[in-house]
């Protein structure tokens, strides 16, 4: 892959932009398509400058139709392209739900392996930015339930830069969930070494008395909780899932075997969620290591509330620490 000159610190949005640029420079079959991604550069400026650099044939605005974006991207992939679709906001993905779950996810299986589906769907997701309805949701579980899709979510600039390139390089459809409230969080990017494969989880803080696992914007919340716990002499391990489908269970199981306690943190409602799956599988695989039930901390099972209430809805460090305390109480 081509190496770009990158600043020492890069916000996540610019890291994705740099990753897209690298992928487009490497492979002229990579296309970017979506609403307002061309001249405007996307409502979060993630594709800024790319239309000017690569031209309107490879970076293009689409009609305002999520179903149309995904459906035509499937056709483009059938014709040998690697389309990267931007869905403008999490809550607007559902008009494309049929094309994603019934078509995109199933093409390779339907074609008995004779058709790859290298389509990436970028989805800015999650709350915490004071947004209005449909602009703050975490719909990843709907898609994690669908065989045929791969689902990832970076939480750092380095991962954002590399994971978007790895997602584009994959011959399978990848949904790329971008934690929009961390778009402007800066971090270092090493353009010479990705560090981990696309679907690997990462231990981001080591600890001994309990394990926190989550993805996207919740990684920062978990790290904050671990820092506060450390001040009270409670040692917590923090794992960034990075990949939601498939989930890399090995580091989670290893951690639980060490700590005996697991708290799963997510923005999405907990009912039938990614956290539910982790709780179930850890119970199956590490039953004798657990000192307490796996506890889920998530959004409430309600429609995402108006912005003035999102501080109550989206888990924060205090909610995580409350769960840790309950876990330690067993």
């Amino acid at each position: 892959m081509s190496t770009q000159q990158l600043p020492a610190q890069l916000p996540i949005a610019k890291a994705i932009n740099a990753g897209l640029r690298a992928a487009m420079a490497d492979d002229d079959k990579v296309l970017l398509m979506g609403e307002d991604i061309g001249t405007l550069g996307g409502v979060f400026t993630v594709t800024a400058g790319l239309e000017a650099e690569f031209g309107e044939r490879r970076v293009f605005d689409t009609p305002l139709s999520e179903d149309g974006i995904i459906g035509s991207a499937i056709g483009l992939a059938m014709a040998g392209f690697r389309p990267v679709c931007e869905i403008q906001f999490d809550g607007f993905i559902f008009p494309g739900f049929d094309q994603i779950t019934s078509q995109l996810a199933k093409q390779t299986n339907r074609h008995v392996g004779s058709m790859a589906m290298p389509v990436v769907i970028r989805v800015p997701y999650g709350g915490g930015i004071g947004a209005i309805e449909h602009h703050q949701e975490s719909p990843e579980a709907y898609f994690a339930h669908t065989p045929g899709l791969r689902i990832v979510s970076p939480s750092t600039a380095h991962d954002a830069y590399w994971m978007i390139q790895e997602a584009i390089a994959s011959n399978d459809p990848v949904m790329f969930f971008e934690p929009k409230r961390r778009y402007w969080q800066k971090g270092p990017v090493d353009p010479s070494n990705s560090g981990l494969p696309l679907h690997a989880a990462r231990v981001v803080r080591e600890g001994t008395q309990g394990t926190l696992v989550g993805h996207g914007a919740m990684v920062g919340v978990m790290l904050q909780a671990a820092e506060l716990a450390a001040a009270d002499d409670v040692s917590l391990e923090v794992i960034d899932l990075r990949s939601i489908s498939p989930i890399d269970f090995a580091p989670i199981i290893s951690s639980v075997e060490k700590t005996g306690r697991l708290v799963v943190v997510q923005e999405a409602p907990s009912f039938v969620s990614v956290g539910s799956e982790i709780a179930a599988q850890v119970s199956e695989r590490a039953f004798y290591s657990l000192q307490a039930p796996v506890i889920r901390v998530g959004g409430f099972d309600v429609p995402f509330p108006p912005a003035k209430l999102e501080g109550l809805h989206v888990p924060d460090a205090d909610r995580v620490l409350d769960a840790v305390e309950r876990s330690l109480g067993y």
């Binding site: 296309l31 459906g71 035509s72 056709g75 992939a77 014709a79 040998g80 049929d98 094309q99 019934s102």
Partner: peptide
């Protein structure tokens, strides 16, 4: 079999033929 879904695939495929 999902009624009409292929109309978009055919269109995207045609877009690809032109791009190619």
């Amino acid at each position: 079999l999902v009624i009409g879904a292929q109309s978009l695939h055919g269109t995207g495929f045609a877009m690809g033929l032109a791009l190619d």
